[in-house]
């Protein structure tokens, strides 16, 4: 489903990704962990081209892209890739001027050209799936953080993506609201959604991941099944990081 090879990204002189390779099978969950500044969010954002990689290749679903410094991808290719991915942001980024329902129908109507009725029906179904059937007509400002993030998940799912990307989806939430969002993500995993999740929650990572990668300074320093990465890390950098978390 996803194959990334030799991905590089720099901001000016600062190299954020220094050659990242990864593969992910359909229906699997990949969790990316690592200290802040390790490049995990940048890697995730490269998967839907919110960040444009400088070098390397990316294959995702039916789209296959090669990045070269100085050459710009055609807009059509970028849009094509984005249509196969859904993204959930740390800060939700719901559209504040639209109700929960309209947040979910907007792109269905403008991007996928669905009829309003169909889009609304789909949106209501998704709201029900995330436990917010009764909040359809609420504006984001009247929803809690956990509720907003669940609407954001429904909004991304409405586009029927091949892969869902989660960028620290619970980091901006009050502790008591984290559980309701994790529950929805676990539910998606159980339904066989292909997902890439950046998170700081190690217990959640261990529970939901099929494969874990640990990044540090723009490189993957450890990867494997969650049990191996968490309990039997091979690299010293991974041991260090996990020890630090254990304290």
């Amino acid at each position: 489903m996803i194959r990334v090879q030799g991905l590089h990204k720099s901001y000016g002189m600062q190299q954020v990704l220094k050659g990242v390779d990864l593969t992910l099978q359909k229906g699997k969950v990949l969790v990316i962990i690592g200290p802040s500044g390790s490049g995990k969010t940048t890697l995730l954002r490269c998967l839907n081209l919110l960040e444009m990689p400088d070098k390397g290749s990316l294959q995702l679903g039916s789209v296959s892209l090669i990045f070269q410094e100085g050459s710009k991808l055609p807009t059509k290719e970028v849009l094509n890739l984005r249509k196969q991915t859904g993204m959930v942001f740390q800060s939700f980024n719901l559209f504040p001027h639209l109700t929960a329902l309209r947040n979910i129908t907007e792109a269905q109507i403008t991007v996928q050209r669905r009829r309003r009725n169909d889009a609304e029906q789909r949106a209501r179904q998704l709201l029900e799936n995330v436990g917010l059937a009764d909040k359809a007509d609420f504006y984001p400002s009247n929803l809690s953080g956990g509720q907003q993030q669940r609407v954001a998940i429904a909004r991304a799912m409405a586009m029927e993506p091949e892969v869902m990307l989660f960028d620290e989806p619970t980091s901006a939430l009050d502790p008591e609201l984290v559980g309701e969002v994790l529950k929805v993500i676990k539910q998606l995993a159980a339904e066989g959604m292909t997902m890439v999740i950046v998170t700081h929650l190690m217990r959640f990572a261990a529970e939901v991941a099929d494969h874990v990668i640990l990044m540090d300074e723009g490189l993957i320093v450890e990867e494997g099944p969650p049990h191996d990465v968490f309990h039997n890390p091979k690299s010293s950098r991974a041991q260090q990081f996990l020890n630090m978390l254990a304290e």
Binding site: N48, L50, T75, L79, R82, K83, T85, G86, M87, F89, S91, N93, L94, F95, E106, A107, T110, V111, Q112, A152, R155, A156, M159
Partner: peptide, 15 residues
């Protein structure tokens, strides 16, 4: 973030 959310849903710049 508003732009990014719109882009992530497949919208063009104009949309």
């Amino acid at each position: 973030g508003q732009w990014e959310a719109a882009y992530s849903l497949g919208m063009t710049h104009i949309q």
